[in-house]
């Protein structure tokens, strides 16, 4: 297999992983209206937890060690890490949503992510500080006796199956009455409370689901790299995911795939490959990163609905499966009132 094919599959892997990540942020931000600038924190927490759950316990020695390790199979460590991250996200949400206006919330969320990032750099007792977690096992590799390249192809498939399941779940949630309550909160949280919805509870639920999705993405990133440390992520990388959401189309599950693919192929993985294989200089890569900002501005200005706009649910959509009900509405009664 050629090096290009390995690169290509790795890029596909990133597209899938960031599709998952942007689905989660889209729920919290575009569908519930919470500017969750700490989203990438949950990606990182998911990555660390996936590592910790699948690694054995290493007692602290020479500044390297992890507080605990469960030595679980990687396939199990990932969802377990995501559940714990989801609970953590709900806890953070419960603390901060209680009191804060949303514009302050945005700042506080970034500050929280920065504090925890600094903590991960300085604290060596939990996850080895800047060394971070290494040798995170490749799920299935040992069982199937395959090399790392073969594993990458296999695991891209595993990620794709996960993504399809998470896409279906997100679709089901957003089409449900629960998803409708989320959108009501996004449009006007005061009205949502007025019509009897417990806004606080739904916001926390939304953040929990978002945290779960972020953590799945983070867990996959850690498993692909077999390591995770403070230089694997930065709180401000959340901007890339926001851009994927905006470019793809806020509130659109398939749009998230488009946004993730566009950014990963043209602005992140693609330029990295070109820069390291042909240009032998990181400048091109850096310029591509700068261009993400420009892409976001242009997209938001000229096409705020994104590449795949959110689809409104029509009356036919709601009644479609029950044609008998359609007849109960007698169109003759309709008063065409131009108020």
């Amino acid at each position: 297999m050629s090096a290009f094919f390995l690169f290509f599959m790795t890029m596909v892997f990133y597209v899938i992983v960031f599709w998952i990540a942007s689905l989660g942020l889209d729920l919290v931000w575009s569908r519930t209206g919470i500017p969750l600038f700490a989203y990438y924190l949950y990606v990182a927490v998911g990555a660390y937890l996936t590592g910790l759950f699948s690694l054995p316990h290493v007692p602290l020695q020479n500044g390297v060690g992890n507080l605990f390790g469960f030595n679980l199979p990687g396939l199990l460590a990932l969802p377990l890490a995501a559940v714990v991250t989801g609970l953590f996200a709900m806890f953070v949400g419960a603390v901060f949503m209680r009191r804060l206006r949303t514009d302050y919330l945005a700042v506080v969320m970034v500050a929280v992510a920065l504090v925890i990032w600094d903590f991960s750099q300085n604290d060596i007792t939990l996850v080895s500080g800047n060394t971070g977690l290494t040798n995170i096992p490749l799920p299935l590799a040992g069982v199937l006796h395959i090399n790392i390249n073969q594993w990458t192809y296999l695991y891209t498939g595993v990620a794709f199956v996960w993504a399809l399941a998470l896409w279906w779940i997100m679709k089901t949630v957003s089409n449900s009455p629960t998803g409708r309550v989320f959108r009501a909160i996004r449009d006007d949280s005061v009205v949502a409370a007025t019509i009897g919805k417990n806004v606080y509870r739904y916001q926390i639920l939304s953040m929990g689901i978002g945290g779960f999705y972020a953590a799945i993405a983070g867990g996959f990133l850690a498993q692909l790299a077999t390591s995770w440390n403070p230089s694997s992520w930065a709180p401000f990388e959340v901007f890339n995911v926001f851009t994927m959401v905006i470019v793809g189309g806020v509130g659109s599950n398939l749009g998230m795939l488009v946004g993730a693919a566009l950014l990963q192929v043209l602005f992140i993985q693609g330029p990295t490959y070109v820069a390291s294989n042909y240009l032998h200089s990181p400048t091109f890569e850096t310029l591509a990163a700068a261009a993400i900002g420009v892409l976001m501005w242009l997209s938001l200005w000229f096409r705020p609905q994104g590449a795949v706009p959110e689809r409104l649910k029509s009356t036919a959509w709601y009644l479609g499966r029950e044609p008998a009900l359609q007849e109960t509405i007698n169109p003759d009664l309709t008063v065409e009132e131009r108020a």
């Binding site: 009455p177 449009d187 009205v191």
Partner: peptide
């Protein structure tokens, strides 16, 4: 008036 602007008129009622 505070409508739920991003949702359809039908959904404004259904959510309530």
């Amino acid at each position: 008036s505070r409508e739920l602007g991003g949702m359809t008129v039908l959904e404004n009622l259904m959510v309530s």
